[in-house]
Amino acid sequence: MPHITTSALQRADGSATFTSNLYSILAGVNGPVEVQRRDELPEEAYIEVNIRPGSGVGTPRERYLESIVASVLRSVILVHLHPRMLIQVTLQVLQEPSEKLMKGKGEVAVLPSLLNAAFLALVDGGIPLETTMSAVLVAVDAAGGVVAEPSIKELLICQSVHALAYDLQGELVMDQSTGVFDMGIWEGVAEVASERCKAAVASTEDTDEMRDTDESGEPWLRTALEEKVRAANAWREQT
């Protein structure tokens, strides 16, 4: 289960940290704020994503990750509510595995953490959103076994690695897959990932026998959002 803190930054409109078993990401959101003239869009908000790597300065790798995160966030944020404005998302990688993941696996592996952190920061910043989404990392080992939330050792020897994101309605928001696989394996991966994302927002009160906590994970996103709502309504209960 990932570790989440919200409102980690004092001066940002919204912020969150998201720590999975591999990466720790700090996300900050500012917006809606005034936009630079060249980025201004007449009918919707411009989404700017900045990614800072764990060490060094941004490279084309970060530009590539930024373009993916921005396009996913654009499909989740209600951009038409803030025309000619800017919503700025800054993601800082705080911790990453010391082993270097080659052949594009490293980029795919970091994406779910980046997206989850960015989404939680957007919620914290009160940016109007169309839906709730969560992302999950899935790896396929040499025998074709599907492993959700793989460890770094499993990632180093896996055949393929997949980052998928689903929304509350169970629609596929993002899929980044790399490695060698076939469509049968991909279907299995998509199923495991959608189960995981469904479990992340599953009702906490519903102690139904159907829900197998060990299989598909904890409702981490719902817990985080519920805590957020409780904190926001605390003043109401005091008066």
Partner: peptide
């Protein structure tokens, strides 16, 4: 016969 990569982002229309 092998798939080397799928890269999808930007919306929620394309399903499985």
């Amino acid at each position: 016969k092998r798939v080397l990569g799928i890269d999808k982002a930007g919306g929620r229309v394309i399903g499985m």
